[in-house]
Write a protein that binds this DNA or RNA. Structure first.
Lengths: 154, 154
DNA sequence: AAAGATTAAATCGTGTGCGATGCAAATATA
DNA sequence: TATATTTGCATCGCACACGATTTAATCTTT
């Protein structure tokens, strides 16, 4: 069915588009996030906190597939902006609990309109909402497969 | 059909998975690229050069959606590894032409087996090759849409 | 031909990502 | 209980990404 050349093409046309699409979508957020003075990864952390109120660094990492080497500096920046609190847990001194400050909680309202603005940019005459949903389902399925593969290496 | 809440979910479950999948797929390359002493972005540049032999920094940027602020340091590292040559063009002193060294050209053979290894990790019982092709087509279509949106901002 | 606009690289500063390592607290094991 | 292991976070170093600016070369316009 498929020769080696096609496989090479398929692979390169799969991983590279993921890399490119990720960077370009992140760039689409910038004009909306800049007024809030946050970056896209910082926005992802806040999205998680707006949902769960309080999370450990480990919890946040599990959700975003990141570890403390990336998160600790990022969280310190959010703390400097006075959007979050970082408090070491009393029951387990190893874990640091992250929670929203009043300012960070209020930012949720300002950020509320971002997702619909981004989504509207995706839905065009070439890509309606049902196609987008099916694509997302496959993307998430792929993500789970990769997740298993990479976690096996640990 | 779709209320605001669903839209928020769809959006967050589209952009974030792109971000996560991109990082995890890049991580999948690492064990294969480390023996060659190159990173994934460096590998992408070499893929382009293996195909076109000689490209300007601008050409490479157009292909990878990157600009000189990212490429110049990256290309200098590839030059330090003696994989490429960087020569300022005689006909247009503004452009820098990038070409493969003998060492860089030979690396192509060592890298030849990487794509099939990566691809085999994607094709599982949950995701056969035809599904993967259809997913890739949608991903590329999405990439073009984003590309138009982001280039309009310039 | 001279002045202005555009273009291609380079540079700078900031913010991620991430492998590797360090460290202290908690848990497991002997 | 003492020791070994694991866990959660922090730190370090390096390599991207990218907005903003600079510089020199080329092109445009007059």
């Amino acid at each position: 069915m498929s020769n080696s050349c096609e496989q090479l093409q398929l692979n390169n046309q799969l991983c590279f588009p993921l890399y490119a699409a990720s960077r370009l979508t992140t760039k689409m957020y910038t004009p909306h996030l800049k007024p809030l003075d946050i970056t896209y990864p910082q926005y992802l952390v806040l999205l998680a906190l707006w949902q769960y109120k309080q999370m450990s660094v480990k919890d946040i990492g599990a959700r975003l597939f990141l570890e403390s080497n990336t998160l600790t500096p990022l969280l310190k920046r959010l703390e400097q902006k006075e959007l979050i609190h970082r408090v070491r847990s009393k029951t387990d001194e190893r874990t640091v609990m992250v929670s929203l400050s009043t300012k960070g909680d209020k930012l949720k309202e300002q950020a509320a309109e971002i997702p619909e603005k981004i989504l509207s940019a995706f839905t065009t005459e070439d890509f309606d909402e049902s196609e987008l949903i099916s694509f997302r389902n496959n993307l998430v399925k792929l993500l789970h497969i990769i997740q298993d593969k990479t976690s096996n290496n640990k």
